[in-house]
Amino acid sequence: MALVRKIIAQSTVDGPGNRTAIFLQGCNIRCAYCHNPETQAMQDAEAKEMSVAEVMTEVRKGIPFIRGITVSGGECMLQAEFLTKLFQAVKALAEEVHHPLTCLIDSNGTVPFARHPQLMEVCDGVMLDVKAWDSETYHLLTQARNDEVVKENLAWLLQHHLLTEVRIVCLPKRVDVEVILQNIAKIFDSIGEKAPARLLRFRPHGVIGELANHPMPSDEQMAEYAALAASLGLTATVK
């Protein structure tokens, strides 16, 4: 069983192609810019306990219109065992209906993927958030101190060809975007593998707390980040 916050049957913003997106309840960090803070608590009256079979009933409705599923959160890796069973069920369904389906994870990278080999066997890729590079910056943004795990995950996923994309929420002063870009470029070079980077513009929509009314970074600022990424040899898209 997993605690499911929401299932979106048709999502065009959670990975490549058209996907069914499943949002699990509960997160282990507290990002100041979180745009769905209602999914942070480990328990919530609006979240629903669902079995793999119940989630699969929803996934089935998307055949043959979806390319796969994306599980997000909250932090979905906190329910890794459920993910393993869900992804196994999705792969079985793909065989049954002769329609390829991919299983992606959208994660903050604070749970080591290397410790879940069975899950990684049925997972087609991870969209990894890199919140900040500097440990203090990370702590100020997330109230957490698990950033070393994120960096280890970044390298591990890259080595195992499971890094679908790196996501960076761009919020000047609060996020060290330039440092992140420089360091992921370094890691890409040292491993000799690459993954696309997605530069997400901070948007106050849904945000609560100190950043609720914070302005979005300007087009010029986003263009500067994109230019830096390009100069570092990264394939980056701005959204």
Binding site: T12, N18, F65
Partner: peptide, 20 residues
């Protein structure tokens, strides 16, 4: 209008519909 950012997603829907 978000469809514009992901034409591949719309193509998935077309492929599905046409296969049916």
């Amino acid at each position: 209008i978000t469809g514009k950012q992901n034409p591949a997603a719309v193509l998935d829907i077309v492929k599905g519909a046409f296969s049916l």
